[in-house]
Write a protein that binds this DNA or RNA. Sequence first.
RNA 1: GGCUGGGUAGCUCAGCUGGUUAGAGCGCACGACUCAUAAUCGUGAGGUCGGGAGUUCAAGUCUCCCCCCAGCUACCA
Length: 569
Amino acid sequence: MARILVTSALPYINGIKHLGNLAGSMLPADVYVRFQRLRGHEVLAICATDEHGTPAELAAAAAGQDVAQYCNEQHEVQKALGERFNLAWDHFGRTSSDWNKRLTQHFAEMLEANGLIAEVVEKQVYSIDDARFLPDRYVEGTCPNCGFEKARGDQCDNCGKLLDPIDLIEPYSAVSGSKNLEVRDTRHLQLRQTEMEGRIRAWVDAAEGWPPLAKSIAYKWLDEGLRDRTITRDLKWGVPVTKDGAPREGFEDKVFYVWFDAPIGYISATAEWAEATGNDWESWWRTDKGADDVSYVQFMGKDNVAFHTVSFPATILGSQEPWKTVDKLKAFNWLNWYGGKFSTSSKRGVFMDQALELLPADYWRWYLTAYAPEGGDAQFTWEHFQGVINTDLANVLGNFVNRILKFAASRFDGVIPEGGEPGEHEAWLAAEVDQRLKAIAAHYDAMEFRKAGAETRALWAAGNEYLTRAEPWSHFKTDRDKAAIGVRTGINLAVLSAIVAQPVIPETAAKILHAVGVPEGKRTWPADAGAVLLDALPRGLEFTVPDVLFAKVEDEQIAEWSERFGGAV
RNA sequence: GGCUGGGUAGCUCAGCUGGUUAGAGCGCACGACUCAUAAUCGUGAGGUCGGGAGUUCAAGUCUCCCCCCAGCUACCA
C-alpha cells in the first residue's frame, strides 16, 4: 500500500467555477483519488479556495461586501458545489486560514534567514480616487503601439505587445475609470530566485513523473534565467508581513503576494485536516517525519505549471527545510466554449451550479473526464456532449445493465441463476476483461484520462457484444442452463463495469452495485483473473432492477440549453 | 517578438525510440438480432497525416523554412 498525496490547483474565490476549471484540475484529481483508493492505497486529497489578491477585493467590493465576509460565503458555495459534484476531498480548506498565515510567515522568515530575501523599492501606479495601488493589468489606456483604446498595463489585447503601465496613453484605473493616477515608490520584499537557479534546475533535472509539457515549461523559465520575484503587495487582504514573528516595520499595509501564499495552502489545508481529524500532517509533508514514502501528485491547468515547477519549489527549497516536493504532475489544457474561452468575468459557458440544474453530476463527470483536454485544448459543444452522453452512458452502459438485469428478473425470478458451464463465449469475455482491466489501471496510473475512459467504455461495450454472442434469450427456450450461464456471466460483468466506473461516475456505479447487492467491501479494484471475476456473485443472490440509469439527452433539451447559454451562435 | 503545445478520416482524438495496405470512437450506409432506454451486434465507405524542401533503402514519425490555432512571457490568478 502506498501513501499518495493529491492536490488540485486551488480554485480562486471570485465566483462559481465553470466547467473548464472543473475539468482542468479538480475533477481529474478526484477521479485519480478515487481510483487509487479503490486499489487500496492510502490517499489524502487536499484542495482549498485561493482567497487573496486584488480580484478578491474587487469582487467583494462589487458585491458590496467586506472581503472576509465575501470569502466566507464564496468558500461555502464552492465547497458545497464540489461536494455536489462528488469531489471526495479529505479537506477543502482556505488560504485565509490561520494555519496558512502561520506557514506563509514561517516560509518567508526561513527564506530571509537563508539570505534569500531582499527589500527593494519599486514604482507602482497608485489610484488616488480608488485609494489603492493598481496591479499593471488594472491600469488601462491607449496602446502606444497600435492605438487600441482598452489596452491593459501589462499587455495590449489587440496587438499583443507587452507593455508597462507608464507606456499607456491616457491611462485610467480599470477599477473606477479614474484618470487620477500617479506613480509612487513602494517598498517590497523580493525572493532572490537568482540565487537558487542551480538548486531548482537540479531539482527539475531529477524529476521523473512530469509530462513533457511540464518539464519544458520549467526549463523554459530556467533557460531564460530566473528573476527575483516580488512576493509582497500593497493590499489589505492577505497574509500580513512579519519579521521575527512581529509585524514588519514599514510593511503594516502590505501582505504577501497571493502566489506566494496560495501553494502553501496545500500544506496548511493538510494541517487543518489533521487538526480536525486527529491526524498527523507532518507525516505527509516533512520528509524527516515520515513523508519520505509519500508520492505527491499535483493536478493543474497549463497556466499554473510554472508556479508549481519553479516558484513554489523556490519557496520550499529555499527554506532549506525537509519539505516534501511534487513527484508527479499532471497538467491540462483548456476546455473551450464554442471556440472561445469559458470566462468567469464575462459569464461565458456553463458554471458548476448551472450544470447541476441540467443534469446529475455523473453525466458531467464522465464527459469531462473521458474527453478531458489532455493533448491540446478541447472544445465543449452541446452536440458533442449530447452524443457522448447518449452513446457512452445511455446506450452502452445504461442499456447493457438494464437489458441483462431485466431479462434475468423476468426469466430467472430475480436471482443469480445456477446451471451451465463456461464455454467459448465466456472464455472470450474473460480474456477481454483481463485485457481491459489491466489497460484501465495502467492508464489511470499514468493519469491518461481519455485513454482510461476509452478502455472503460470498451469494457462496457464488451458486455453488449457478449450478450449478442451468448444470446441467452434464444437458449432460454431450449436449454435453460445455457441461458443461465449467459445471464450469470452478464450480471457479473455488469458488476465489474460498475466497479471500474466508480472513479468517474460514483453515483451510478453505486446504484448498480446496490441493485445487485454487492457489499461495500467487495467494491475494490478487481485483482482476480477474468474467469474468476465473471463468476464471483453467489448463485441464488437476489437482485433488483434499478430505474433507467441515464436518461438520454433530447434534441429539445439541447435546443433549450443552446438558447439559454448562448451555444453555437 | 520569444518560448511551449497543437494542426492526422465529416466530428473528437490515438499513433513509443522512422519500417508491411495510417488506427479508434462518434456520425453515415447496408445487413443481423429482438433480451433491452427505437437500445444492441456485424460489415462497409471516407484521409495526398497544415504547406514546401531535405536526410534515408524507408517519414505522420527526423532536419530546415513557412502558414494557422492556443497558452505562457514573471504585478490577473
